[in-house]
Amino acid sequence: MKSNTTQRAVFFDLDDTLYDHLIPFRLALQTILSTGDDFPYEPAYHRMRYYSDKLSAEYGGTPTLERDLEAMRNSRFQLSLAEFDITIPTEQAAAIQAEYLSKQFEIEMFDGALQLIQQLQTQGVLVGIITNGPPEHQMNKIHALDLLNIIPIEQIFISGALGITKPDRKLFDHVANKFGLIASNCYYVGDSWRNDVVGASSAEWNVIWFNHRGVQPESAHRPHHRCASYADLTACLLGKN
């Protein structure tokens, strides 16, 4: 497609960027392991996401074979919980994973997310989603959040449907090429350092790290902006408080 040198675009990650991914994680541990209120859910969640990204990268992207996907998902719980002195067998990890999946559709967008998307669209900004994961699973979340009422499906990109997984820059290049966008006009908002900051940086997009968990960088990459809330994101993208 011919390049559009004036069109500005903002793409969002899905999990833990548009909605709180910690909620299903907390509910799964409470249901299967009976963890109490004093368990450090947020640090444990961060380590689970770390191992999820790490293992996915070792597979060369989100696994497409159900056997490999199941093994990766179980291992991320075993590895992350072991850091908090909880050792679980594979069967129990699978039970946590099943409960975690069942709760992932009882979700709502972060306060301010819908309003930000609508304000961007009002200004003529192209808004979309780039997310890793199996197509059906990610689409179920998108339906649960009612996102198709505000973002056209042709502006939603799921790694499992394309065969390209963040942080591979080819995924971001594919999106830019589809709409004739130039990298300097593209912004990406995401919480994952490995997938979002590294991936979008490699494609020379403007990177907004949505670090609402207050975690530390994992490499020498430098996001253009760091935001901890949707108020921060709104100020960053719209210049408003």
Score class of each variant (00 low, 15 high):
A144D: 13
D16I: 10
E70T: 03
L126D: 14
A94M: 07
A82W: 02
D232F: 01
S229D: 01
P63G: 04
N132F: 06
I32T: 13
L181Y: 04
A57W: 00
D68P: 00
P40A: 11
I156D: 12
R8Y: 00
L33N: 08
A161R: 12
A161Q: 15
I86A: 06
K2Q: 08
E154A: 11
L101D: 04
L27C: 10
Q155W: 02
N140S: 15
L162K: 10
N4K: 14
I96L: 12
G112D: 11
L69A: 05
G163K: 15
L65Y: 00
I129D: 07
G180W: 00
G163Q: 14
D37R: 10
A44R: 01
I32F: 03
Q216V: 14
Y230C: 07
K178I: 03
R226Y: 12
Y188C: 12
E70H: 08
I107S: 00
G36D: 10
Q104C: 03
V207A: 09
F110P: 04
I86S: 04
G133R: 12
V198T: 11
I117S: 15
F105D: 09
I32S: 06
N185Q: 15
Y59I: 00
A44Q: 00
T62V: 03
A95T: 01
V207D: 04
V175D: 06
Q78C: 05
L29W: 02
L22N: 05
R222Q: 15
T87P: 00
D68K: 01
D146T: 10
I156G: 13
A203P: 02
A44G: 06
A82N: 04
S80M: 03
A44Y: 11
I150D: 14
P135T: 10
M1L: 13
L114D: 15
A144K: 14
R226A: 09
Q216H: 11
S229A: 04
D232C: 03
G60H: 04
F77M: 06
T62H: 03
Q115N: 15
P43T: 04
F105M: 14
L33H: 04
M48L: 13
E83Q: 12
E108W: 04
I142E: 12
P135D: 08
Q155M: 11
L233C: 00
G214W: 09
I156F: 13
T62F: 11
L233S: 00
D85A: 09
P135A: 14
Y188F: 15
A228D: 07
M1I: 07
R73S: 06
V125Q: 12
G36Y: 01
Y19C: 12
R76D: 01
H46K: 11
T35K: 09
A82I: 06
M109A: 14
M1V: 12
T234K: 12
G190C: 07
F110K: 13
Q138M: 09
A28K: 05
L162E: 13
M1T: 15
N206Q: 13
C227N: 09
L171H: 05
Y188R: 10
W209Y: 03
D20H: 11
R76C: 03
P167M: 08
H174D: 07
A113E: 12
T90W: 10
A144L: 11
E42S: 06
E154P: 02
I86G: 03
